[in-house]
Design a protein around this nucleic acid. Structure first.
Lengths: 224, 224
DNA sequence: CTTAATCTGTCACAAATGTTACATATCGAC
DNA sequence: GTCGATATGTAACATTTGTGACAGATTAAG
């Protein structure tokens, strides 16, 4: 295994090469390759190993018993998957994970993860930081979902993106269909609201670019 | 501090008295008392300590800048609070935490938590298990919110409660107003849907008691 | 460049939900 | 019990959102 690649993994940040080799040598860690469309984990399967992507990307989906899929998230290297659900009482994968392309991944059994975290304080801190990051995004999404109207959700989304890029003009990274899905609303409804907001002079939207025209009103929308 | 009380705390489960005393003696841990309505943590305040309730209970609320409150959760002793957000980059309390009654709590600085987790494998496992439990509930609530219609949400809620009590008849513990708030819908809309579901023969609702009449159809609603 | 697939913008219409209002019922303090 | 506060049940009406459909635009593959 290549130290250059492994040291890029957030979980192993700031850990020296010798220390890393020592840790790896003591544990049962394997590198596995998955083809496109291969299953890395099935929904409801016991979550007994940590999977960290080394290259490629996967999609996580929820399947209900009627077979309908709900896309949950995309995960790209070098991130871990389902790190929040590795431990716990009845820990099962909440989603099905499929390779979107050729994927290589590190697979570490749960027991080894536990030992590993006890071996190195920095590693432990990394693990906790990464977990907190995921938890924070989960919680943010929940907060986001609590906004009632599409207009409010758009306001939140636009203001957040604008803050991130320090600009009154934002570029959509996802397609509008994906955005509608993320919002949990239908695509035409999202389009309609974008159009209305443009008519109302709140924003100016063109293709994948949105410009903020009335920051005050957008802020007001969010705060009730 | 009393070992009997401390050993009831999930985080310290299965840890012997001497070991616990050793751990506590090395760390900076304090016991604090809060009066009713006292603030244990403010929203957006840096989350630099772990707070574990020893007795009493608190409520966690989100406040937007218009002052509107969204009740998030009640936490009772002997549970920890905001354990998921203790670490991470820009870790702040996502909610405001207020004592619902007289409360005593263990307060452990973040650095001490880190050291503590490195000192004892069982403690580490407990911590990770507890975190996973919270993450799992968060994820479940998100899944719950993703159901579109009020009827679906009611179906999920009723079926879940029915499973918990092993009975086709459930009692509401909250008022219907509170339930509506939890669902993120208006009270009259919730009432209307309950009435409709009764007319459709799915349930029979009276005061705070709901009986399941058509389990098959309720299950179908959930799975699309 | 051509073609097929996907994404985008826009309708008209249906369905779900919110709002406001009011009457009644229930609960708690006294 | 009385009384005020809160919870419940219901209605008419307004608003928001979903659905299905369509044509044009954009993108990716060949």
């Amino acid at each position: 295994m290549d130290y250059c690649i492994v040291s890029e993994i957030p979980l192993f940040h700031s850990i020296g090469e010798e220390e890393l080799i020592r840790i790896f040598s003591e544990l049962n860690i394997s590198e596995t390759r998955f083809r496109k469309e291969a299953l890395l984990a099935m929904q409801d399967e016991p979550c007994n190993r940590l999977i960290i992507l080394l290259s490629g990307s996967v999609k996580a989906e929820m399947i209900d018993s009627s077979g309908r899929m709900i896309k949950v998230e995309d995960i790209v290297a070098p991130n871990p998957l389902a790190i929040l659900f590795l431990f716990g009482q009845n820990n099962r994968f909440p989603v099905q994970v499929t390779a979107r392309e050729e994927v290589t991944a590190l697979v570490i059994p749960k027991q080894s993860v536990l030992r590993m975290l006890g071996m190195n304080q920095t590693l432990l801190k990394n693990y906790l930081d990464i977990s907190a990051g995921f938890a924070s995004r989960l919680s943010q999404k929940l907060h986001f979902m609590s906004f009632r109207t599409i207009r409010q959700k758009l306001a939140v989304y636009i203001m957040k993106r604008s803050k991130e890029t320090q600009s009154d003009s934002i570029d959509l990274d996802k397609t509008k269909s994906a955005l509608a899905e993320y919002f949990g609303v239908s695509r035409p409804s999202l389009e309609r609201e974008l159009t209305k907001m443009q008519l109302d002079g709140l924003i100016s939207a063109n293709k994948k670019k949105i410009e903020i025209k009335d920051k005050k009103e957008l802020a007001r929308l969010i705060h009730l």
